[in-house]
Write a protein that binds this DNA or RNA. Structure first.
Length: 253
DNA sequence: CTTCTTACA
DNA sequence: TGTAAGCA
């Protein structure tokens, strides 16, 4: 009915760059910059002007959230390019897990023994070092240098010690977490194998579909991680309420 | 007049 | 990331 000449967009859910940028609270310049880095899909082109959809908007909003959380553009880029088909929320959680996103392949890093002790806020202790070595979390390089094999575990662990937990408690948590999370991990992998991989093997294995199956399995990693994290968090909160809440209440009495 | 690209700062 | 020039 109404055909205003200034509004060629009759598809209700499509925007021009300008509208897109506005809704995402970004400048057009940055929208284009992200687009040029492949962070958003190319728009539907009509002549020379592009028309963007809600999917584009959501992607930009995700980028903004991650940027606002303090991640570098490079890290955001890495996260998005890694899991293109994963829902935006999952990618966000994935980034939180990966922290930086870059050193996911070989995270090991060299650190003087004194530095590790400083991070934990405790005096240097050979026994603690040995305990970490036994857990395959670090390696002895020489008398003064350590190789941190799993910084994602060691760094927060040191932080926990710095906050007042005993090193023994923190170190003791590692085998405990490995054991219990390992059960859940093996269960999920087993079910994935049975329900996703096996059917493809059974029905004749069209070779060209393998990348897709493999991709699906890969993408389950961040999704499962997110669920694990959410459940663990709620368990932590529940424990805090009962255990610590009770003690505080007793103090009040 | 707007979109897009490229280039520069 | 902003600004500008040239183009469709």
């Amino acid at each position: 009915m109404i055909a205003t000449m200034s509004e060629p967009t009759l598809h209700a859910e499509e925007f021009t760059v300008d509208e897109l940028a506005q809704r995402a609270n970004m400048t057009v310049r940055n929208v284009r910059a992200y687009a040029s880095r492949g962070l958003i899909d190319p728009p539907r082109l009509e002549g020379r002007t592009g028309y963007y959809t809600l999917a584009h908007l959501q992607r930009l909003q995700l980028i903004r959230q991650l940027l606002d959380r303090g991640f570098t553009l490079a890290a955001v880029e890495d996260a998005i390019l890694r899991s293109p088909t994963t829902a935006p929320g999952h990618a966000l959680e994935l980034m939180t897990l990966l922290e930086t996103g870059d050193d996911a392949d070989d995270p090991s890093v060299l650190m003087p023994r004194a530095d590790l002790a400083a991070l934990a806020g405790v005096p240097q202790d050979d026994e603690l070092i040995d305990a970490l070595v036994d857990l395959d979390l670090i390696e002895k390089v020489d008398d003064t240098m350590l190789r941190i094999l799993d910084p994602a575990v060691v760094r927060p662990g040191a932080a926990a010690v710095a906050l007042g937990l005993s090193p023994e408690t923190v170190i003791g948590a590692v085998p405990l977490l490995r054991e219990h999370l390992g059960v859940a991990a093996r269960y999920l992998v087993h079910r994935t194998s049975e329900e996703i991989v096996q059917p493809f093997l059974d029905e004749g294995l069209p070779e060209q579909d393998w990348p897709r199956v493999f991709g699906a399995v890969e993408e389950l990693l961040p999704i499962a991680s997110q669920v694990m994290l959410a459940i663990f968090r709620s368990e932590l909160r529940a424990s805090i309420e009962t255990e610590i809440g009770d003690k505080l209440q007793q103090m009040g009495d």
